[in-house]
């Protein structure tokens, strides 16, 4: 086996140069030329200032904004350096208690009846803790709250929601979704106080 050690070391170094340096640099070079916006993080600007990434969810708590899903990333949620899920099992009492609280809070915030069903995505955390999207059902139920806070016609807000609904890619891949950050920025452009 000792005779194999030298080739082993040389091979490690050669392949590190090839796939550990040249390969990622080639991908970076080509990405920088053809896809520089996405390669750097799909940043979204408002008035020239970067306010986030179109791909990453962020916290919204003001009633005039649509709210994202609950997040397990970091203490306050949506921490870009602490991605992750709650990892609570499906019958874990901690999960059930949390969901119960979230259901009640969602109903109250959105002026729903005490027994109104709440879209599941509004009361469960995502896998990444950075889910940029909510379901259309969730967005529609928040419309009334947002319209009231902005003194807008709910129908007008619904139109913005519809315009920002991303349907399944190629018609069948994935699920319909509404990007919360882009939706909220669109509402801000629309005005209302």
């Amino acid at each position: 086996m000792r005779r194999q050690l030298l080739p082993a070391l040389a091979m490690t170094l050669c392949l590190t140069v090839l796939v550990g340096v040249m390969y990622p640099l080639a991908v970076s070079g080509a990405a920088g030329i053809f896809f520089s916006h996405t390669a750097s993080g799909s940043f979204v600007r408002r008035d020239g200032r970067v306010v986030g990434s179109a791909l990453l969810g962020q916290n919204f708590t003001d009633p005039k904004y649509f709210w994202p899903r609950p997040s397990a990333a970091g203490a306050d949620g949506y921490d870009g350096l602490a991605s992750g899920a709650s990892n609570l099992g499906p019958s874990n009492p901690k999960l059930l208690d949390t969901v119960k609280e979230r259901v009640a809070a969602y109903r109250e915030a959105n002026h729903l009846a005490a027994d109104a069903p709440v879209p599941v995505d509004a009361v469960t955390g995502s896998g990444s803790g950075l889910d940029p999207a909510i379901s259309v059902a969730n967005a529609r139920l928040q419309t009334r709250r947002v319209a009231l806070a902005r003194r807008l016609d709910p129908d007008e807000v619904l139109k913005v929601v519809a315009a920002h609904t991303q349907t399944r890619q190629w018609g069948f891949l994935g699920e319909d979704s509404v990007n919360v950050l882009e939706l909220n920025l669109a509402l801000d452009r629309l005005g209302g106080s």
Binding site: P90, L95, V120, S126, S128, D131, S135, Q166, G174, E175
Partner: peptide, 19 residues
């Protein structure tokens, strides 16, 4: 209006089926 399913720990864009 929603894909539904067991959404704890899942992303909207993939849904429960995608998981």
């Amino acid at each position: 209006l929603q894909s539904g399913g067991n959404m704890e720990g899942k992303e909207i864009r993939f849904g429960a089926v995608g998981c």
